[in-house]
Design a protein around this nucleic acid. Structure first.
Lengths: 132, 132
DNA sequence: CCTTGAGCTTCCAGTCACTGGAAGGCTTAT
DNA sequence: ATAAGCCTTCCAGTGACTGGAAGCTCAAGG
């Protein structure tokens, strides 16, 4: 399988696949002409990576998950720990964004949005102390 | 005002303040010894920037907002447009994270998290097609 | 006067996960 | 033979800082 075909099948762009090889997530062999030769195991790994990335796992998390995936003697607790930590990080992020959203939607609603310069959004930004 | 003092008062690290000067968001004058000399207007701008960044506005949005803030002939509609667009982007981001969170929390709950290798999280990652 | 420590300066490099583009080799079809 | 479309590597850029090195300035203490 050339990179174009595995890109198609995995849903990842060729650039990303080369990058994943660069950082050691996959190790395709090479053909005589220098082209990368991908096997089914590479396709499985790339699909795994695409899904994990879509769930927001960092590359380093993905590396750890991939190692566990290939480790017959893994303990599911190890996987769960990574996922639970990530879930917690996502919850934090959501909470942070909801906070922004609440403030911002209040401000947007309060602004007339007309031709006059008066604007509660700018008033808020200039008045408030930086949020922590 | 030296950079240390304005950092204290604005809540932004000196490094960030220098960076904001680099990219042209502020223009402090200089003392004879080469130190930056900040005025009250700089403090107001930095406070404004800190707040805007805390609400998640990009640096380019901040630049536009700062320009409007200083523009006597602005129209509040211009401000509202930027804020509304950002609000929309935040909503999109929240929706995306909620999607991840739902999937991930299901998976975390389904995983025993014990010493055995069987793990629904890994099963999901390896089975699923990449999420669009 | 000298030293010490804190604060200031610039500049370079690194973060994260790609992405774009250039320059050139290989393959396939006409 | 040539053109199109693959593939290769390498370099640079993204956003918004952040860390660290090397060196200058200032204020206080001995």
């Amino acid at each position: 399988m050339n990179i174009g075909e595995i890109a198609e099948r995995s849903g990842l762009p060729p650039k990303t696949i080369r990058y994943y090889e660069d950082i050691g997530l996959i190790r395709p062999t090479r053909k005589a002409n220098g082209y990368r030769a991908f096997r089914d195991t590479d396709l499985h790994k790339l699909t795994f990576l695409g899904r994990a990335r879509a769930l927001g796992f960092s590359i380093e998390d993905c590396r750890a998950l991939l190692n566990l995936y290939e480790d017959e003697s893994r303990e599911s607790a190890q996987v769960k720990a990574i996922a639970a930590q990530h879930l917690h990080a996502i919850d934090d992020k959501i909470a942070q964004l909801l906070g922004m959203r609440d403030t911002l939607s209040d401000l947007v609603e309060a602004c007339q949005g007309d031709h006059r310069p008066d604007c509660p959004i700018l008033s808020d930004l200039s008045r408030a102390q930086p949020v922590r």
